[in-house]
Design a protein around this nucleic acid. Structure first.
Lengths: 209, 209, 209, 209
DNA sequence: GCCTAACCGAGACGGTACGTCACGTCTTTTA
DNA sequence: TAAAAGACGTGACGTACCGTCTCGGTTAGGC
């Protein structure tokens, strides 16, 4: 669960609870239904609320009660599909970076995450709201982790002092992104993460090392 | 005009011409209309054929007569919005790469190209057809040019012999892509292209240089 | 209270009472709420159960617990709105008929009864159940009273022997109905009842009288 | 075709015709479909636009294009169901009145007209718009004809000079209305029209006749 | 200078999905 | 157990587009 748990559609709860509570089972059924449809290759354009409701065996109103938009719904789908943050070994900046990039590679390959993200990513970019949510809860934190690793690398001498860490980070992440988005022919082969990290670190390592 | 000029909707012309020929003015009006709508910030979801027809002062059938899909229409819109390939100075691999990356940066900034591409890029990825057309006529050729420049750089000693040119290319293009897509907060500031090229080349230059 | 008191929704009471008894105040609040809505000119189509519940500050289930249908509820609303049967003077058939018709005229004028009945009458006719209940408990008894008065008129010589009393009754009631339903422009002016009775009686009185 | 032919939904026709003209066949299919549903005993509450469209094999928009309301549609259904005005013999006021009342009786019996009118009449009364249209084009003209016949009856001595013709008309029409609306058990037997007319005329004929 | 075929605008057509609302049933907590 | 609150599946509402189809009215050759 990487995405923030702040769902806006929740009724203002001043009083403890009033009336029949919302069924969590229904909530899961809807999100699982969307994932199933995406995995089955249904084009995004055909992912109508009506079809989602039909698939989940649920009334349309039940969906609108929870999410005001298809966008809002997709934010929760992303949240459910998002893999956990990887655990960093901490042995060296190089090892941490490999783990981070490897998790990025895995995400590009993993069937569920890949199918869902690859499709929804597209929708995200065209929707400021959904993109903002995804950026704030997934992209930015991941970047912060990467920057922190690089900073530690500078401290312990693995990385040159005069390097622009922002640019270095982009040089690490960039190739993975290029191959995922622009070059679907390029295979995200095993060992790719190590090669990228080593190539970048070799160029930017302190001369005296 | 970078995109292929093969439009499938042209009527099978066995006889020279029969009846009134199609008006090129109408064609331009439609494409210009779509661009105007995109530039005006109309969300992609609201770009209905009906609205496009209304904007261009044109009948729906006139659009469907030319393009079978909204996708097909968008391919032509991309073709019209795509800037020319930049001219390479040829003085050195470094200079050529800077020009290539600078043109990439410009595209990310240019109002028209940016607005249109940034919006349509998204749709592209969700549409195999439109993405295939864009990849074949824009992405792949640009990459080929970049690879050729790098190869020449290897020949004249600007680039190490043992480097993976594919990966090097991605390390050059990647940061630009990361900043355009993932980090809209990051400014594509002037001089960025030079900094990227120099950083990568410095790390991967022959030791004896 | 003219309408039969047989409400079907009463729970089968074998044991004296179990649990919390139903609140009569709630019952009144619901019926009063419906009347208020009708008097306020709310169109019948907008008289949803949900709105009735909201108006009365009551849960929907509380309504469904008492009445299975909106129709059943309306029967009770009619019952509450129905004026008492008039008291007949008994001095003569003519006087009794005037009183009967006058009460009919009053009903057509009275704000509450009129608004409610005029609106609900319509719904009645489209609903066999509600119409049957209204006919059995209001229309038929009133007609029986009228027929009885006419029969006494025949006996005491106010009405000719050879007349079709059924038809005569319809000739008395008919004009009032015509003016209520077909000619809303026609005023139900004071003295109308007397004029109708006298006109009909004059034509059908024994010649030797 | 007794009802006025002024349909409000017709597009403002300043220019001769623009675009594809509306299909009259579709229009007929819709109206016929509604009649069929009513005759088949479908409750009025179940006569949804969606069902009407399904029955007629027509899109919902095609209905809304012609009629803004279900009410407006029903006005046209009434228009199509309304029988022609009867032709008056003109031999005497008595004969004319018999023909008028007989046509009223027929309407109450005729399967199509009866089923449709009896059901829609109800809806009419709850809808000021539809009732106004029906009153203006059916009820009022018929009444005018009846009044004219009575006036001629006064002139040629069939009817007393001092009688209130309005009231007399209601005494003629009233019994028919009572038996149609209030007493569905009462049969509209053959010869009923003659009996009513004769009974009323006998009472109100000039004494010297 | 006609003829004729295709184009053009407009908009009707059968559909599908939208987001809202009411239906009648159900499942909570509170009294 | 009643009562309020409100979630639930269902389905109609009226609107907007979809992509196809007619219309009347151009607008170009080719005869």
């Amino acid at each position: 669960m990487s995405l923030a748990d702040s769902r806006p559609q929740q009724p203002q709860q001043d009083c403890p609870v009033r009336g029949r509570p919302r069924s969590e089972a229904v909530e899961r059924a809807i999100i699982e239904g969307v994932m199933k449809l995406i995995e089955d290759g249904v084009p995004l354009a055909d992912l109508s609320i009506e079809r989602i409701a039909r698939t989940a065996g649920v009334g349309k109103a039940t969906i609108y009660r929870r999410w005001s938009d298809k966008e809002d719904l997709f934010i929760d789908v992303l949240r459910a599909a998002e893999p956990e943050d990887p655990e960093l070994p901490g042995t060296s900046a190089r090892d941490d970076l490999v783990v981070l990039l490897e998790s990025l590679r895995q995400r590009g390959l993993a069937s569920r995450s890949s199918a869902i993200l690859h499709n929804v990513y597209v929708q995200m970019k065209s929707s400021p709201k959904i993109w903002a949510a995804y950026h704030a809860t997934v992209v930015a934190p991941r970047r912060r982790i990467g920057m922190e690793v690089l900073r530690r690398g500078q401290e312990n001498g693995e990385v040159r002092q005069d390097v622009d860490l922002d640019l270095m980070n982009d040089m690490l992440v960039g190739p993975m992104l290029v191959r995922s988005l622009l070059r679907p022919d390029a295979r995200l082969e095993e060992g790719l993460a190590e090669r990228i990290v080593d190539t970048v670190l070799e160029g930017l390592r302190p001369v005296s090392s």
